[in-house]
Design a protein around this nucleic acid. Structure first.
Lengths: 129, 129
DNA sequence: CCGTATCCTCCAGGATACTG
DNA sequence: CAGTATCCTGGAGGATACGG
């Protein structure tokens, strides 16, 4: 169906530990979303939560910690009362977000195609069982 | 930390159902890997399995069905004995794979940065508790 | 306000055994 | 060879309650 680019197939499996290790942590259900929200500007913890419908405090904190640990997000504590904590993207975090937008672009570009593929598949596999 | 691009923040949350719906299925642990292996040329079911260390027959079949349903992979049955089934990427499947390679590129470019970020974070949070 | 601590649920995905 | 059918487990992640 597609021209074979004479690629190294081993490289493909090597991709495993890679994508799993480095990108799975961005894909922990809230990671990418947080990047997306913060891309429009830094926010406080509670504001962030409000922009992510359905997130639990637990997961919000966990995800933020991971992103901070990876140097994608900064955490700034202002010792006032009540305490204030601001989160913002680092340059690297922003660059990852931009890369994710490429993926989002792909998805939008092929939304219709995928939708039709599914309908056809489902139709063909109803009669055939 | 980063210039605010005056982005629409709502758009970010809208990303939710999107990425979850369309890309999570490619991210079903084996989806991307299968695309990677098939990008070097079509393969039979068993060959595919051999190129994906640790995959179970169950998941291999499930993932392939999903990819086929989405129009990313073709399944061609040759009625010989023993039966032969070949899988290959469609053009759209190949384009998705190329997009994933962009992500892989990002990861490689920032591997060192992330590694150092983690070490620093872990060091700083050992003493502080 | 900004979290941490606990408990609990749910399901992706592995192991295994069987068929056309 | 190319799957399907079952059973089973780990761990991601939600709900809730509490603390500085």
């Amino acid at each position: 169906m597609v021209e074979e680019p004479a690629g190294s197939r081993e490289h493909a499996a090597e991709l495993n530990s890679w994508v799993r290790g480095l990108l799975a942590r961005v894909e922990d259900k809230w990671g990418v979303l947080i990047l997306g929200v913060l891309a429009a500007g830094g926010l406080r913890y509670s504001e962030l939560g409000r922009h992510l419908p359905g997130v639990s405090q637990r997961m919000l904190t966990l995800s933020l910690r991971r992103l901070e640990r990876d140097g994608l997000v900064t955490r700034t504590v202002t010792p006032v009362n009540p305490p204030q904590v601001d989160y913002a993207l680092t340059e690297v975090g922003l660059s990852l977000h931009r890369t994710m937008l490429v993926l989002l672009g792909w998805a939008k570009d092929h939304e219709e195609y995928i939708h039709r593929s599914r309908e056809r598949f489902d139709a063909e596999h109803r009669g055939t069982g």
